[in-house]
Design a protein around this nucleic acid. Sequence first.
DNA 1: TAGAATCGATTACAAGTGTAGTCAATGGTA
DNA 2: TACCATTGACTACACTTGTAATCGATTCTA
Lengths: 124, 124
Amino acid sequence: MKRAIARSELDLMSVLWDQSGLAASAVHAKLPTDDGRSLQTIKTLLSRLVDKGALRAERDGRRFLYHPTLSRDDYAASATRRFSERLFGGRAAPIVAHLAEGDGLSDSDIAELEAIIRELKRRD
Amino acid sequence: MKRAIARSELDLMSVLWDQSGLAASAVHAKLPTDDGRSLQTIKTLLSRLVDKGALRAERDGRRFLYHPTLSRDDYAASATRRFSERLFGGRAAPIVAHLAEGDGLSDSDIAELEAIIRELKRRD
DNA sequence: TAGAATCGATTACAAGTGTAGTCAATGGTA
DNA sequence: TACCATTGACTACACTTGTAATCGATTCTA
């Protein structure tokens, strides 16, 4: 059952990472208003995420409250590694280079990057 | 026709980015030996990529030679932006942080990152 | 208490994806 | 020349994804 989280499903994960234990209707309500997807669609996606093992459904009366079974951080880490591996042989620099093209990065982003680099070099 | 390049198709793009103008059999031969996909499969994927406009097929006798119509760099840039946007609100630092987790980055990668940061700060 | 709203479950269905078989034409070879 | 290999075209087919309708049960409300 360890299929991947689809693009459209990720939006729901994101909502539930912000606040775990929401019912389907609440998840629907929390999506951007311009989202367009109907409540039925959200329910289907939630079921699929439960099938995939990405969510746990906790019964609450006649409805379910949904909880992520993997953290946003864990997901982001493995997705990032896969992405970097697939496109850049696991390297980080080309990613940053692409994001920096055309006044890409904010000052705070740059400052964070600096801190990370400093730490990496210290650890070295 | 501007559908996205699928995961499995990306492998073929990668081969053709390394060396443009290969025939189906050559692309097949250049894939990792443990790849498993049959030559027939490769041909199907190549056709799909032509349909999608990601490859141009140049007739050469009774076969075709395939050429990417978008550069690896352009593809990587837009894929990277999409990825970063989707998972990290467009920021670069969390990506590097994830890749750095658990002795992730090589010395040369770190050096490149440093150079990029230096340049970004200079530009600032 | 009768109808309305809401819930999960089931079903639908087109498009996309991964993988490959079959076929007819062509080109190379014994 | 008679076969065999190779090529693109076409077809196949199960699975995934995106989106939603329908249905039966339950709960809220007038």
